[in-house]
Design a protein around this nucleic acid. Sequence first.
DNA 1: GCTTCATATTCATCGGATCAATTGGAGCCC
DNA 2: GGGCTCCAATTGATCCGATGAATATGAAGC
Lengths: 236, 236
Amino acid sequence: MGVIETAIDTIKQMIISGELRPGQKLPVEKDLAEQLGVARNTLREAVRALIAMRVLQTRQGDGTYVTSLSPGLLLDGMSFVADIHLDAGAGEFLHVRRILEAEATALAAARFPDADLARLGELLDRAESVAAQSPIDHEKLVALDQDFHALIASHCGNAVLAAVIQNMSGRTVRARIWRGMSDPEAVQRTLREHRAVHRALLARDAERARIHAAAHVLGVEESLNGSRSPAGDDDE
Amino acid sequence: MGVIETAIDTIKQMIISGELRPGQKLPVEKDLAEQLGVARNTLREAVRALIAMRVLQTRQGDGTYVTSLSPGLLLDGMSFVADIHLDAGAGEFLHVRRILEAEATALAAARFPDADLARLGELLDRAESVAAQSPIDHEKLVALDQDFHALIASHCGNAVLAAVIQNMSGRTVRARIWRGMSDPEAVQRTLREHRAVHRALLARDAERARIHAAAHVLGVEESLNGSRSPAGDDDE
DNA sequence: GCTTCATATTCATCGGATCAATTGGAGCCC
DNA sequence: GGGCTCCAATTGATCCGATGAATATGAAGC
């Protein structure tokens, strides 16, 4: 194994073992390099790799710090994966998102704070007013859509589940989905489905919430690939 | 944005746009650095970040290549996330794994090749023979357990789903689960649950497969946190 | 035709130099 | 004294050049 890989693993182990805790500052490059027995440039490449994994964070003139290491932070590189497989794999990502979002929405039904239920309704109001204008500002709809799903996921009681859902569809994927809705009817259908999920959450009905959430994502899947089975049942 | 981040994004864009395709060789460091207008060391840090994301791969003496970019490859950094949250978040990861594995097992029921159904049975035979010995070789059980779940996930027909499941429980997490089974009865129960999943798959019964898979992971969850709700229903 | 080996190519690692951002304190003004 | 300004130290960011190590390539020899 190369020197850099060894350095990466050493730092990882220092974190897993608790020697380095979230938010803690690392020794200065020169010292840490010496401690690990590598050159400064080599250490920098190791640090750069950990920065890419959102494990470390540097601030010029200040120092290098361990991040919060929260699942939401560490899992957010996944959205890039979704973006790369924009064409071939979008359906597969959506399928996973459907499974997870259905569960998360059901879980959220029991624990959604009333204040956030109201906020959820406001998001829908704003989305509907945007959709009523012409031409439709798809950028705004994408942002509101993301907020809608993120707010629900954040209340599922499972930070890992929320993080995975959040990153399952990258920004590019989500933008493409909405851009594909040139048909105003598709936009209206999406908003109706969102309303249905909202009503189920208002009623604290987990099963209704689950079904509406699943149907909503499934609708998106089908609109992407022309109602073929998104699971790959076809043998193409 | 720093020079390195710019270089990373530029290479990413070259991949997303298709200018760089999977398996393709990148220009030599010197040329690529010049092309991007950065020093060679700077480019190396950008490349190192993309290596950490499993997007690039270098071979000393040969060159730098774009990886296959398969979801399974790109998502496998996730297992490190699971390892970091070994204590606090293991239950949350397992919950997500339960949701996904139940679905994947159900999906696999219809498309499992007969040959691999037989292999699945052999894995169980070997696991039972290992469990029958004393002292129990937990390392072997962990490996067989991983193979068992991986084989099922690989036949769900969705590469993204399979990859996420595969990485939802890191090696460390899985090892800890089995090490925690000092009680031989717990090992036997796990093997019985695996058998139940196998029988359901043999019968091509998706619903039975789903239920047994979910029950199996749920059992692991409960054994980890003493039958409290793993979703965080308690207000600790 | 095959193996062996020298050589070129390419990434890996190193050490040092300079630039840029942040911090912290000294000094100054009100 | 309190607050502000500015300078110097600290620290990461970027660059440069050199050497080492692994691989590929092609020539030489059998």
